[in-house]
């Protein structure tokens, strides 16, 4: 029983303090699952989870919760508890934010705030694209060909799901 409680607390913390999403949450997850007091995973195990998260769909926080929950407890229930715990804080906080926003969005001050936030979000998306333009994602000229093709297809509003599948199949054909 103790293990489920420990999993719940650790992943609740990750959900509560994991601002910024994605890789911004990695140090926090590492601190909870590799560090003291639990030492649930070795650093090598953790690197494996990051790699698996990159290759599987879904947010990395959810992926690591499910993986750690299962391996640590040896049961599906551990995975359920950890995944639930990591989703709980965002669910409560985001519900409050949504409620507040939907009530006050016509408010003059809210409009002022969002006038500045919109360009900031464009900046954040640009930052995400820039960070991903690394040697892990772009290994050779074929990567660049895929990038350019998908870039053009996206401008023509082709369905993203179709593009992902086609890009994956091109990967199998090309590599």
């Amino acid at each position: 029983m103790q293990i489920y409680l420990d999993l719940f607390i650790a992943f609740f913390k990750i959900g509560l303090f994991g601002f910024g999403g994605g890789y911004a949450m990695l140090p926090l997850i590492q601190h909870e699952v590799v560090g003291e007091p639990h030492k649930w995973l070795s650093m090598a195990d953790f690197t494996d989870i990051v790699a698996i998260s990159q290759m599987t769909p879904g947010p990395i926080a959810i992926n690591s919760a499910t993986y750690v929950g299962y391996t640590v407890s040896g049961s599906v229930w551990g995975a359920v508890v950890a995944t639930f715990a990591v989703c709980l804080p965002p669910l409560v906080i985001m519900l409050l934010i949504s409620k507040f926003y939907l009530r006050f969005r016509e408010n003059h001050y809210m409009e002022m705030i969002f006038a500045g936030l919109k360009p900031a979000i464009i900046g954040l998306i640009t930052a995400a694209a820039l960070t991903l333009m690394n040697s892990h994602n772009f290994i050779d000229y074929k990567s660049i060909v895929i990038f350019v093709a998908v870039f053009i297809a996206t401008l023509f509003k082709i369905d993203p799901i179709k593009l992902i599948i086609v890009a994956g199949i091109s990967g199998i054909v090309l590599y």
Binding site: Q54, M55, P119, I122, I125, T126, A128, A129, L132, M133, H136, N137, F138, I139, S143, I144, I146, F147, V148, A149, V150, F151, I152, T154, L155, P160, L163, I164, A167, G168, I169, S170, G171, I172, L174, Y175
Partner: peptide
């Protein structure tokens, strides 16, 4: 491995391309 080698640059393109029309 090969499947994901194809997907990774595609994901970056899908994030970058809408930036202009969005702005």
């Amino acid at each position: 491995e090969a499947f994901f080698k194809g997907i990774r640059p595609a994901v970056v393109a899908m994030i970058a391309a809408p930036l202009f029309s969005l702005s």
